[in-house]
Amino acid sequence: MKALVYVTLKPDVLDPQGKAIVRASAQLGYDAVKAVRQGKLFELELDAADEAAARRLLDEFSDKLLANPVIEDYRVVTIEP
């Protein structure tokens, strides 16, 4: 199966990279870009029996390694056969 997991900094953790991107946007004339939060997207290939099993595995794995729960949130975006 294939899955996408999206990891972002928690809303109350400052994201200086996102802020730098907003500043660059303004310099390029994209004043419409008001805020940016930078995250990470992981593409995974899994050996899982079904979607429920894949989700259990992804929750455990994301908590343990892909995200640091102290500063980050994760979201399983898609699970595909």
Binding site: L14, P16, Q17, A20, V70, I71
Partner: peptide, 17 residues
């Protein structure tokens, strides 16, 4: 030590990058 849970909190990117 923070990642492994032996110390509280976390270290993130410097404020000024």
């Amino acid at each position: 030590l923070c990642e492994s849970g032996l110390l509280p909190g976390a270290l993130v990117r410097n404020h000024g990058l």
